[in-house]
Nucleic acid binder design. Structure first.
Lengths: 347, 347
DNA sequence: TAGGTCATGAGGCACGTACCTCAAACTTGA
DNA sequence: TCAAGTTTGAGGTACGTGCCTCATGACCTA
């Protein structure tokens, strides 16, 4: 029976009293308004520290009669995973609204760095507190991120990080761990050894390379009887991936497994269904979307590794609130958990 | 670029205007105070519906200068998983406080229905909005839950449900799916067929039975070459489990896998480390705790299925807020995702 | 018809913060 | 030393809700 002793949270009044200044001065310090001597500001900061004061975000938003605005820039195109990210944002809307947050989604043509950069540049700090972007590494975007940060907008990267930029936070899975997990599972699935084909979207994408590296590491270390064929590039395109898989299956009748670490899973499933093999083939793919879900149900895919879009959006929202509080610096950059799905635990 | 049109949330003022009554009357209806004719209350309800009004929980808590109080009753004893639930509550404290919530934890001697029932009976509705309990099915507790509900405390069950009671919500994994997943993985791990030993804590526990049933289903349907030895009861006790596993390993030199669907994993790991087998043994256990983590790292355990205590506590808190809003009825009782951990994706 | 009960309205204060105005106190430079 | 500027204090209003008091009017019953 160890109840916590509940001490009232410190308020701006407490801070003012502790610092020996007026409410107005505390307010000026808290909200970065001018007209406070450095020495006075220091007294206030000290009082804030010693009281452990943290602005009451909800009272603050209420007083401004204003929602906390977060804009998600999500690639548009044929990638189902990106759609599910956007859907996850939509699913959060009502709950976010109850917490005085407003989520907006902007779909950007995939890999269109110019439009994304322009979008970031066009954000008004008064109408947007936080931007969440999914992007590849482009100098143009790096600059736009730094500019937005300078204007007072907290920028966070989602799925794929933008190291070297002023982004406040990265939300995504550990892709190396995902690759290692795939190898670890396939290794156990094929105790007799054999050949595994590896398909990537592109060998220029950071997340795909990370997965590949993790996959290779574990295979080399723990399962030396397994050989990798590839990696091949399917460019995340269903048609191209389908042709690739069909050719692989025809040329390697003894193939033991396939690891598709990119997208284009509709093509993967189509090729597998067509190929009517007699001996079992163990297949691992990424992202729980309509095609992979169908593949799991039909038995053509054994395991799907998932980024958990809902979890990622939830983290992004939590981080946005943390930055609005000003406590963002203490945010741990711990990666999202990798979802592992079989036919038997589909959500 | 599809921004959402942001319409201001409806307030009590809007409701009053729409219903053609005063603020005081809306207040009386919203907070269940007496002195409103049924016909008038109906008008107010209609206005609430048509405006989609939902009380601003934070303003409400602020006005009452009161936190939303949630009490977690968590079993005490040797069970590491229960400890990690308590730790998950502790981890949420600071964030919850920022959202005007106060979390208290009470550790109850495991399976001590009397103390739990007394704890529920002793809750003051003014000091506690929501109780979250981990319990087995006992009539005594069922009655205490119904009583607490009658006094205005929302009760939620965690990990194991209490069907037939007035509990508002259940938070936990789908144990049938967990058992099916274990079978599906072991089936793929042992393509040659063989024998799998199954160990439960007790065959009187609902969650253990559910796991066992799921496991049996998938094995029978998809992997007929695998035979189950057991189930044996380890009573979630490390020493007993260790003896059991040691005996199993000695008597079945050709054992292909072990599924421990209960606790007592320290004993499982100890027995496995002692046994120095030559041929690989595939082992699946439940709950990511210190012993199972050690087993994964050492290679004695292949896969751990996890309830994800942090996720469960998060859900419990979200549900408590939903009930405080009065929107609890629309809460979907969708189960928490099952965490699947290999050495390669340990968090 | 008087006295009573009940339903409702009007309005105020509180919660913690933001943002505004006005006046007073202080500092600085010539 | 005085004028101009800067810094600070005091206090108000607002946000959306809860909770309280008081007044008014409607209705019922003796």
């Amino acid at each position: 029976m160890n109840e916590q002793t509940s001490r009232r949270r410190a308020t701006v009044h407490d801070v003012a009293r502790a610092a020996g200044v007026s409410l107005a001065t505390v307010d000026r310090v808290l909200n970065g308004r001018p007209g406070v001597r450095a020495a006075t500001a220091e007294k206030v900061e000290q009082a804030i520290q010693s009281l452990g004061f943290s602005r009451d975000l909800n009272a603050s938003l209420m007083a401004r009669s204003r929602d906390l605005k977060v804009v998600f820039f999500i690639p548009d195109g044929s990638n189902e995973f990106m759609d599910s990210l956007a859907e996850a944002v939509a699913r959060r809307q009502s709950q976010a609204l109850a917490d005085r947050m407003h989520l907006a989604t902007r779909r950007i043509r995939a890999l269109d760095a110019g439009t994304l950069a322009a979008g970031l540049d066009g954000l008004d700090p008064k109408a947007c507190d936080c931007a969440v972007i999914v992007t590849s590494e482009e100098p143009e975007i790096l600059e736009a991120v730094d500019n937005a940060t300078r204007r007072g907008i907290a920028v966070m990267t989602l799925v794929s990080d933008l190291p070297g930029s002023a982004r406040k936070h990265f939300i995504g899975i550990d892709n190396g761990a995902a690759g290692r997990t795939a190898a670890s599972l396939l290794g156990r699935f094929l105790p007799q050894g054999g050949k595994i084909a590896v398909i990537a979207g592109s060998l220029h994408l950071r997340d795909h390379l990370d997965r590949l590296a993790g996959f290779r590491d574990v295979l080399a270390q723990d399962f030396p009887d397994l050989d990798i064929i590839g990696p091949f590039e399917g460019h995340d395109a269903p048609a191209e991936t389908q042709a690739l898989v069909a050719k692989l299956l025809a040329e390697h009748r003894d193939l033991g497994g396939i690891y598709n670490l990119g997208a284009g899973n509709a093509g993967l499933v189509a090729a597998l269904e067509e190929a009517q093999r007699c001996q079992p083939l163990r297949v691992i793919a990424h992202e729980l979307t309509a095609p992979t879900r169908a593949g799991l149900m039909a038995g053509s895919i054994d395991v799907v590794l998932d980024q958990n879009p809902d979890g990622e959006i939830r983290e992004a929202i939590a981080a946005a609130r943390a930055f609005a509080l000003g406590t963002g610096r203490s945010l741990a950059a711990d990666p999202i958990e990798i979802g592992i799905f079989l036919r038997d635990n589909l959500r």
